[in-house]
């Protein structure tokens, strides 16, 4: 599974720290998601899509 979170984060001019504060997770968790070391839960995926004003499909896709 690949994701476009880093790209969307850049688009919204958010640092990993900013995004982690909005989601209530640690900065390291955002880093792990961006580097494909951890695949987030559906709840976190939906929260991310809400922050980036897009669908979950835009953020995550199967390789």
């Amino acid at each position: 599974m690949k994701n476009n979170i880093r790209m969307y984060r850049g688009k919204f001019k958010l640092t990993q720290e900013d995004l982690s504060n909005k989601l209530g997770v640690s900065r390291q968790t955002i880093n792990s998601i961006e580097n494909n070391k951890y695949f987030p839960s559906l709840e976190l995926g939906l929260k991310l899509s809400q922050i980036f004003e897009c669908t979950v499909d835009d953020l995550f896709s199967l390789e």
Partner: peptide, 9 residues
């Protein structure tokens, strides 16, 4: 301190 889902995993 920040107990998120990755910590649970």
């Amino acid at each position: 301190k920040i107990e998120d889902e990755l910590i649970s995993k």
